[in-house]
């Protein structure tokens, strides 16, 4: 089960891929409602906001971190939900 395997919730790290904290100075910072934590918002031509998220991969549950994919091309596809029609 996901919890038993130590999977956390999906969360932004608060920085861009490949960096420990903070974003590019040019990048817009947004503040999340709950935690008052400064986050980096996506911006074209800038480094992508990094995140951790639980995932279902090849029949198993594991954790995915965007910055682990540095060095590769990545296509992130958000979609409204499983079992939707389009």
């Amino acid at each position: 089960m996901a919890e038993e395997k130590g999977l956390g919730c999906a969360a932004a790290t608060g920085s861009v891929v490949g960096e420990e904290s903070g974003g590019n100075d040019e990048q817009q910072a947004i503040v999340t409602d709950e935690e008052e934590k400064t986050m980096v918002a996506v911006k074209i031509g800038q480094k992508a906001p990094d995140f951790n998220a639980p995932a279902f991969i090849n029949g198993d549950f594991s954790q995915v971190k965007l910055s682990d994919y540095l060095g590769k091309w990545v296509l992130i596809c958000f979609y409204p939900g499983d079992f939707t029609f389009v």
Binding site: V17, G18, V42, A48, L70, W73
Partner: peptide, 10 residues
């Protein structure tokens, strides 16, 4: 859909 290059740039 977001395309990110090997340097992590969108």
């Amino acid at each position: 859909r977001f395309l990110i290059d090997p340097d992590g740039v969108v």
